[in-house]
Write a protein that binds this DNA or RNA. Sequence first.
DNA 1: GTGGTCTAGACCACG
DNA 2: GTGGTCTAGACCACT
Lengths: 120, 120, 120, 120
Amino acid sequence: MFQIDIMSRKPVYEQLVEQIERLVLTGLMTAGDKLPSVRNMSVDLSINPNTIQKAYAELERRGVINSVPGRGSFISMNVKDILLERKQGKIQEMRGIIEELKMAGIPKEEILEIINEIYD
Amino acid sequence: MFQIDIMSRKPVYEQLVEQIERLVLTGLMTAGDKLPSVRNMSVDLSINPNTIQKAYAELERRGVINSVPGRGSFISMNVKDILLERKQGKIQEMRGIIEELKMAGIPKEEILEIINEIYD
Amino acid sequence: MFQIDIMSRKPVYEQLVEQIERLVLTGLMTAGDKLPSVRNMSVDLSINPNTIQKAYAELERRGVINSVPGRGSFISMNVKDILLERKQGKIQEMRGIIEELKMAGIPKEEILEIINEIYD
Amino acid sequence: MFQIDIMSRKPVYEQLVEQIERLVLTGLMTAGDKLPSVRNMSVDLSINPNTIQKAYAELERRGVINSVPGRGSFISMNVKDILLERKQGKIQEMRGIIEELKMAGIPKEEILEIINEIYD
DNA sequence: GTGGTCTAGACCACG
DNA sequence: GTGGTCTAGACCACT
């Protein structure tokens, strides 16, 4: 279910965080869904439980999940609001970069080309 | 020659950095050109020399200018390479963000709309 | 805790940067640790707050610390990666210089002698 | 006689400067020797004469060659002193880097290994 | 309380 | 004259 590259320079817990967020973004998981327990995830991926714990802690800090001791970890009820807010931030970020690129003389066509590549 | 808005939330030294970089991007200044001395700029803009110094230090850190104690500050000889490299980096950054936004379900049209706003 | 030589030709803020990096390199400070506040450090060392600020800004630029307005300055979480990466860069730099020296006819013995001096 | 990579990110004139200096360092050319004329070099390498001119100008600025209008360009008579001086500078640079590496905990053996690689 | 920025004014080494 | 550094003291926004 998860693809972890232990040789990667990116910390394992970050890879986990990203992949779980991706599941929510793509709609494969939604508010209220239960995540695998730290122990299960640990043996499935052959990864130290502390690393899983760190990923879950980060996701909770971001408001994406809620961990309830003794019951498990669940996708947060207001996960949609949180992701929406983050989406707005990303859009602003993109706007800033594109404005810089325009200033640097990049023609509109070059940017459109990149967008077409992504949304092929 | 420079337009500084001391009421702006953006720090004065950042405004200076941006405007000098813009002079290079637009070709009004080019490799080897001499910038005003810290003191001259200071009195011209009625700004403290330390603030000018901070802007020049940042530009030197970015490789855009070379400051030579006792002689002055000059547009870097390889400023074009540096700006080109930075442009490539910005494009990659933009690509990453757009890929995230696609993942988050943003339709292509919404992004195109923003680009049209910028390149009106 | 810090030894500053105000008579040295090396700027005070550089001395500070080096000593804080050394604390991390030697393991005396580690990821997440809190640094003294700008003001505290200032009175402790009898140094102007601006000078401390300059050192902290440089450390943040290097990715060694994170300064959060209103909260404080902390050793960066990925400080180990950054220092490791920098170490690799330094080794490459050394390799390049030694290759030049070999080309210039410097005998191996002369270089070994220097290394023995350093690692006495 | 010269290997120029016009696709390289390194400017062509820099490549030329480095290769000519290498000829002197390795003893293949020595004080008083005549370099090819700008025009000859230009057609041999299929490179714009201005680029050759720029390389020669840089070499003259460094004191490595002397260009005599109407006669040609010659390896400088005191080229040995200049290269010796530069060698000393490089050694100091190397010393500084190795001291940093020692501080960063690199063992002597690792450095010796690199040197053995170079001086195989 | 924290970091970030700015002014005012000074000294230094170097060219 | 130049850039680089430092002190002294102030204000801001944010936690």
